[in-house]
């Protein structure tokens, strides 16, 4: 995987690697809740399709048949992280676009919540967030 440099793809992949090592219970819960779905994320047009299995997640070269599509911006992500915006407001105001069937969207919500619980328990996440905020590159944990 060649992405990095503070990109959303780099941030997301580093986060998955950190979660797997530093918060394995949250990683396992996230995977269990999202499997066997494909999740397509797009941040400022940067695409990152993910395929979830029961115990792992991998990046796809291209989106195939996403169960859930998530579209947002870097600005919205940082507003959420800095509590300037709630998730509900982001969706309501169409700053976070979600597309999928009801069961798939519920699975996304539950999987995302598991990711958040892991993120706030992982010692390395503050540095990861700082790098993303600053747009600086960091090591990417291979997820393929």
């Amino acid at each position: 995987m060649a992405s990095g440099g503070g990109s959303f793809t780099g941030f997301l992949l580093r986060s998955m690697g950190l979660l797997r090592v530093e918060a394995p219970a949250a990683y396992a819960l996230m995977c269990a809740r999202l499997a066997p779905r494909e999740l397509s994320t797009s941040v400022d047009g940067e695409l990152c399709p993910l395929q979830f299995a029961a115990e792992s997640v991998r990046v796809l070269a291209a989106s195939v048949a996403p169960s859930v599509e998530v579209q947002t911006t870097r600005r919205t992500i940082l507003d959420l992280v800095d509590a300037r915006l709630t998730l509900a407001d982001a969706v309501w105001d169409e700053r976070l676009l979600l597309r999928g069937g009801p069961a798939d969207l519920i699975a996304f919500h539950d999987g995302f919540t598991a990711w958040l619980h892991g993120a706030v328990r992982s010692p390395s996440f503050p540095d990861l967030l700082r790098d993303y905020r600053a747009g600086t590159p960091g090591p990417i944990h291979e997820q393929r």
């Binding site: 959420l80 992280v81 509590a83 915006l85 709630t86 998730l87 105001d93």
Partner: peptide, 16 residues
């Protein structure tokens, strides 16, 4: 319009 009302710290935890 998008104020979060109650101040919450650390801010990222407000998502939970």
């Amino acid at each position: 319009a998008h104020g979060t009302g109650i101040a919450k710290f650390p801010r990222p935890l407000a998502l939970l």
